[in-house]
Amino acid sequence: MTTLTRTPGDETAEDPGTPGGRGRWTGYLLLLPGALWLVLFFAVPIGSLVSTSLYDPTGTLETGYRFAFDVGNYIDAISTYAPEFGRSLLYAGLATIFALLLGYPLAYAISFKAGRWKNLLLVLVIAPFFTSFLIRTLSWKLILADQGWVVDSLKFLHVPLSNGRLLDTPVAVITGLTYNFLPFMVLPLYASLEKIDHRLIEAAGDLYASPFQGFRKVTLPLSMPGVVAGTLLTFIPAAGDFINKELLGSPQQSMIGNRIQGLFESGSYPAASALSVTLMVLIVVMVIAYIRRAGTEDLL
């Protein structure tokens, strides 16, 4: 969100003539549905989550939980599940890098080279969304199966595989994450590449920049908002994901999402909530640091 330079009560040229009239309330009225939505489905759940994370963890369903401001839940959760936090960030980070490496050339080709095929290609990027997330991830189980053609080909080429398999390894989980979130990388990249004025790239050529220099000094910087948006849209959901590990990983690949789900199922609501809040805070902090560094504050 761009910075609001005007406070809502401020009457300037755009609010003509009717000081104190109906106009000044229109903005608020228009905000109402969105605000209500935010309060009901964001603020209230967050409040509930944070307060649950501070319940006395010795409570049970039978006796009820008591609010105890128990910060110990956080200390326990973080110290017990530090490896899972690390793994989530690592897997999500790698998936984001791979999605960027795959997605950037694709978005570039769609935007600059596709001509009349542009719309068709864009539809193809989104097409996987017509099938359910679960089915798409399950299909990877077939592709990476121990007796499937991928493993067979790799074995034929003498590529070393840990335990002679792909399924239920980190490779499978990261592949699944990359695949599932790739469209979230491609679409913002495409949007920002599409906006680039081609004459700027031509100008770079006129000034004796090689095509690579032109790309590095003109195209890439101008597409940075897309890169930042794309990496965020990939990294954030990937870090909290649990389905890919569930279907494509083994117990050694547990991510934080799996732990939250497990704790919730075993009825350890305070611990599950503490982990959720910690993950959220961690991601918000990382995102802010990243955006500061990338210098695209306009995004927020």
Binding site: A43, G47, S51, Y55, L61, E62, T63, G64, R66, F67
Partner: peptide
């Protein structure tokens, strides 16, 4: 909790 705008000291009743 949300209505109070703060983290009111509450919990869940016995089930």
């Amino acid at each position: 909790v949300a209505g109070g705008g703060s983290l009111a000291a509450c919990g869940t009743p016995a089930a």
